[in-house]
């Protein structure tokens, strides 16, 4: 006697391995320092916390739990930062409002207009020929 389709379907083995589609980035990332999975002590020295509370790399790294206008979200991207810890797109538009102007000198020094060098001035004045003289 041949088993019915329904009976055969119920007897079909479901493998443990399942194709779950292409690998996707995790929806939330928590960058808070945690012990390394292969750490024998399963703990981190206090210095990891204290360094972050003091450090100034792209803004203070620590400070979770501090009330501040720069407080970063505690979940999602860049959880450990405050200034610089929030994605730029969440900070709102960068275009100036009508009648508002940005001053270059308010930016960090590296964005300031570079000074002309003598060589460049000479290049401009001579049409460039001076560089090959």
């Amino acid at each position: 006697m041949r088993p019915s389709l329904i009976l055969r379907a119920t007897q079909h083995r479901t493998p443990l391995i399942k194709f779950i589609g292409k690998h996707n980035p995790p929806k939330t990332l928590d960058h808070t320092p945690k012990p390394h999975p292969a750490s024998p002590t399963h703990s981190l020295p206090d210095s990891f916390k204290t360094y972050r509370s003091k450090a100034q790399q792209h803004g203070p790294l620590g400070g979770q739990g501090h009330a501040s206008p720069f407080q970063a979200p505690t979940s999602g991207i860049m959880t450990y930062g405050r200034i610089g810890g929030t994605p730029g797109e969440l900070l709102g538009p960068v275009e100036p409002k009508d009648g508002e102007y940005f001053d270059r000198n308010d930016l960090p020094k590296r964005f300031w207009r570079a000074q002309w060098t003598e060589e460049e001035i000479e290049a401009v004045n001579s049409g460039g020929a001076g560089l090959f003289a």
Partner: peptide, 21 residues
């Protein structure tokens, strides 16, 4: 000593391979 993202206490300095866990 490193955390789960291979960072030392200084976050931009990471450690990999035999010299760590």
């Amino acid at each position: 000593v490193i955390d789960q993202e291979y960072r030392t206490k200084i976050p931009h300095i990471r450690v990999i391979g035999d010299v760590t866990f």
